[in-house]
Structure formats: structure tokens, C-alpha cells
Design a binder for these strands. Sequence first.
DNA 1: CGCACAAAAGCAAATAATTTGCCTTAGTGA
DNA 2: TCACTAAGGCAAATTATTTGCTTTTGTGCG
Lengths: 188, 188
Amino acid sequence: MSYRENPRPGGRSARVQVAVHQSVRDMLATMDRADITIPLIAQRANVTPSTIYRRWGGLQELLADVAASRLQPEGEPARIGSAREDLEAWVEQYADEMASGVGRQLLRDVLSVADGANAEKCCTYTRSQLAILIARAEKRGEPFPVEEELMDHVISPIIYRILFDRAPGPDHVRNLIAKVMPESVART
Amino acid sequence: MSYRENPRPGGRSARVQVAVHQSVRDMLATMDRADITIPLIAQRANVTPSTIYRRWGGLQELLADVAASRLQPEGEPARIGSAREDLEAWVEQYADEMASGVGRQLLRDVLSVADGANAEKCCTYTRSQLAILIARAEKRGEPFPVEEELMDHVISPIIYRILFDRAPGPDHVRNLIAKVMPESVART
DNA sequence: CGCACAAAAGCAAATAATTTGCCTTAGTGA
DNA sequence: TCACTAAGGCAAATTATTTGCTTTTGTGCG
């Protein structure tokens, strides 16, 4: 009565997935999210609603799935200058993206589903971007915080504020970074 | 076509609210959340579904509302010993509650709605508990972190991990606290 | 005290979404 | 090429949601 596993690479199943995701992205971009319904998505993607219900379960799950794929980073963090500068640039962009209306909504979508798989995915994406920055610093011999510190003391505060409070300003973001950089331990 | 403002103190409106909230709590405690529907809640609360739809808008909003009220702290942080000990005890309990299945779900519910009012509420609750701890420390002349530091470097990492990753263990929580305590600035 | 008013609830019909059983189609591998 | 299987289509049945209209209930005023 319901069959959704991970689709085989090139089959019909995969095409449907792409069409449905695309349809959702289009709709998210052009209409009010409250007006998005599965029958509408299905129509635009040229599939029947029952296909979507069987594969995803419901609107929330579908939105979470789409959101997770949109939160996947598109490339490596830019190379600006020192490892620290790279980090600052990347984090600032990350914070801006997540704090934007769209970003916020993606975060909510990803979190609103009981199955934490999508949320974990997006944490993994972030870690892997940070890992790249850390590797660069190491290669160049620059002192740099470890991943855990960055996650706990830079990423977490940013996301927490975005989700529960007001988005952090650029100065605050820079401050968070300053605090975890190995040199600047001194601080009251 | 829809009338939901903040209800007058003692009226019928307030009674309905209590009944509906109660009904939701009961159901959350006894059944699978996926089986909870507005018609069921309405039946148990002895109101009609349309009342709920008009007052809350939908299931997500109602769940978010109930979740926010359940996240409200019930009393002051316990007095254990030093300000730091009080903080440790409170944070540990907080982390445990939030990391539990129920807590996690409450967080998700509160976040899953576009209107951030409920999420902000729960951030405010946390701040006010911390403020109490800070005030105690000040009164006793014990050195203590400021609110912002606690929010950014203790609460945020805990909640981030709970939402996106694995729940932090008690040792990690203690570590986070150790880092923000004014004495223990020294650390690589 | 009782009356008029307004806000919110009830009711029920109309609409829309979701679920499900059964059938068809398209990929897969022998 | 053929049989097999997983996934999609279709349509009927079920549920949830919306909405117009009516009724109830608290509130404040005379």
C-alpha cells in the first residue's frame, strides 16, 4: 500500500522525482507557500497525486525532501585569502542565506518532519564545508579551530538565532569567529 | 471568515482553549502523533472542528501553540549550591528535556509554523530562566557569564545538536559550561 | 435586572485532500 | 524477446477543510 525506497538510478522513478522536485521549486518561487498543495504539485509535474502520496507520504515530507536538497552546498567555499578570511567569507554567506526568508523556510521544512534524516543531511553538508576550510588551514600551517568548535560556537549560535530569535548581524558573526580563532583566546 | 485574536480572560473562548489544549496533550501522550487529527481533537474537547479551524487555522498551528505552552518553564531553577552548580544542574535538566522524544517533538512543532511568534516565546522563556541564574550570581558576587554568552555558547549548541544531529551527552554539556565560566578562559 | 450588542461557537452543505484497490506501464535481467 | 517486478495511473471511497448562516454566551449599558 505504499512503496517508497530509494529509486534506481535512471528509471522512471527517478524522472518522476526530478519532475516533482522541480515543480515544488517553481511553486515555492512563485506562489504563497500556504497555497501549495499536493494535487497542484502533481498537476504541474504531470503525475497523479497518489504517486506523490505513495512516494513521500505527504506535503511536509515532500517539502522537507526538497528543502534538504536545496540546502546542499553547490561548490567549495571560495578562496579569498588566509584561511581565516575564507572562513569569515563563507560563514557570512552561510548566515545570510539561512537568515533570508527562503533559507529560514527551508530550515523549518527540513525540521518539521519527525524523521530526522533530512536534518542530519544538512548538518553533514555544513560539516563537510567546514572540513574543507580546516584542511586548507592545515595545509598552510595556519592555526585554526577544530570542526567541533566551529559547529558549537559559530554555526549553532547563528542557526539558533535564526530559528528562535532575530537573525544575527554581520558584526555578531565576525565576533563569533574571532572567539574561536586560536590566537584570540584572551577575552573577558 | 476567521476570528482568532487573544481571548478575553474568563469567557467561553478561554474555556474552549483550555479544553482543546488539554485534548491535544492527552492525545500526544496516548497515541501516535500521525493519527492525531482536528476532527478527533474536536470530538474529545467537545467542540466542533470548525471552531478549531477558525481559531488556530490548522493542525500545525495548534500543535505549535500547545508546544509553546508546554515549553514554558514551571518554576525557578533549583537552588543547589553555587551559582555555577545551579547553572549546571539547570542546563543539564534543560538539555535532557529537550533531547527527549517529547522535547524534540515540541521543538519541531514550535518551529514548523511560519509565524515565528511561538519560537520566540520559547527563546524568551529560556532567557528569563538564565536571567534568574545570573541575578543570583550577581547577588552573591560570583563571577558569571552574561546572558548572551550563555545563549550563544551553551544553549545554542545544545539545541542545534538536538535538532540536527545527535543529542549532546552530559559531559559535553558540562564542557560547554566550563568554557563560558569566567575563570576557565584558558583552553587551547 | 434585563436588554442589546458583539464575539465566538455550532451546524451542515460544499469543496478539497487523502487513501486505497485494482489495473497498466516501463524498466530489468534471464 | 519474454516474463517479472516495481512504480505509476485511475477512480471510488473516505476524511479533512472551508464557509455561510444560525445560535449561544458573555459584556456593558441603561
